[in-house]
């Protein structure tokens, strides 16, 4: 029997994969341990379930619902904007230039995007002024830090549309032209080509785009903190408040675990979908 040679290549994984695994697992470990009462800054550290009993408060569910709703609305509204936009862009001269300009918000940092949008939707911002001049509204609307979360939603949509755009545009572009031509030759009109060919083929990409934007928005801290309502805030902000303002790290850890579980659920759904697309 031949002894299998040790594969030295695995040692090469240590700097890249090892670095990531070490720090991610360490923070996961500390998060789980703290949620059960270990690693306290002050007082005794012992196993306890009390933090899990108290974490599910009214505030927690309000904030969870706010993050979930903002994420879902952002993902859905963005895709509703993206689909027709990428269809139109396919047949317009100079589409390369359009795409480059459209990409700009994707490269704008979250906090800058937040300021740029807040600045124009503010109480005396240009949007309110224009609406007033057009006599569409009698008095300025409160859109920044508003209770309904329209401010945060606007920033998220502005930032995420280009991201989904790129995915959808390349998905539609990848449909071979002969497929469309064949359908047209067989007597399909534009609407039925859209319904029978383009939408079914690009649906998986659309789902992936929706899930990716959902996860990013759900975990967001900076945008909802600066443009969103003061109550309810995002789930990330609730965790931050528990840790730094109330010095209650154990409850913060419980919230972190809940966020992690939600993210993992959506990411597994994502990898399941991307495998399906691969086949």
């Amino acid at each position: 029997m031949k002894r299998r040679k040790f594969e030295w290549g695995y040692l090469l994984l240590i700097p890249g994969v090892g670095y990531i695994m070490f720090f991610v697992l360490a923070s996961l470990y500390i998060m789980f341990a703290q949620s059960f009462g270990f690693y306290n800054y002050t007082g005794t550290s012992e196993f306890s379930l009390q933090f899990w009993q108290h974490v599910f408060s009214r505030t927690f569910f309000d904030d969870l619902w706010f993050s979930f709703r903002t994420a879902l609305l952002t993902a859905l509204i963005s895709i509703i904007i993206c689909y027709p936009l990428s269809l139109i862009l396919q047949r317009i001269p100079g589409r390369k230039t359009f795409l480059s300009i459209l990409k700009i918000p994707m490269f704008v940092p979250a906090l800058v995007a937040s300021f740029l949008i807040v600045n124009i939707i503010d109480y005396h911002g240009v949007i309110n002024m224009i609406l007033e001049k057009l006599r569409l509204i009698d008095e300025p609307l409160r859109l920044r830090n508003d209770a309904a979360g329209i401010g945060a939603l606007s920033v998220q949509i502005w930032k995420n549309v280009p991201f989904q755009m790129i995915i959808m545009y390349s998905a539609i572009e990848a449909i071979r032209k002969d497929v469309r031509d064949a359908a047209a030759n067989l007597g399909a009109n534009r609407f039925s080509i859209l319904k029978e060919i383009i939408i079914p083929i690009t649906l998986p990409s659309a789902l992936v785009a929706v899930i990716m934007v959902f996860v990013r928005t759900f975990n967001d801290f900076a945008i909802s903190k600066t443009a969103g309502p003061y109550y309810p805030t995002s789930i990330s902000n609730l965790m931050y408040l528990h840790a730094y303002t109330f010095a209650d790290w154990n409850t913060a850890a419980c919230i972190g675990v809940m966020m992690m579980i939600t993210s993992i659920a959506f990411v597994s759904f994502y990898s399941y979908l991307s495998k399906k697309i691969g086949n």
């Binding site: 994984l13 890249g16 994969v17 990531i20 695994m21 720090f23 991610v24 360490a26 923070s27 996961l28 500390i30 998060m31 703290q34 690693y39 996860v215 975990n219 801290f221 990330s236 902000n237 965790m239 931050y240 840790a243 790290w249 913060a252 850890a253 972190g256 966020m259 992690m260 993210s263 993992i264 990411v267 990898s271």
Partner: peptide, 24 residues
């Protein structure tokens, strides 16, 4: 499998990683 591990920092909620890694 390792390529999926690489994605972890991109999907781990930023604030959660910040708080608890910050602790370490």
């Amino acid at each position: 499998f390792f390529k999926i591990i690489i994605l972890l920092p991109m999907v781990f909620p930023g604030m959660a990683m910040g708080l608890f890694l910050g602790r370490m």
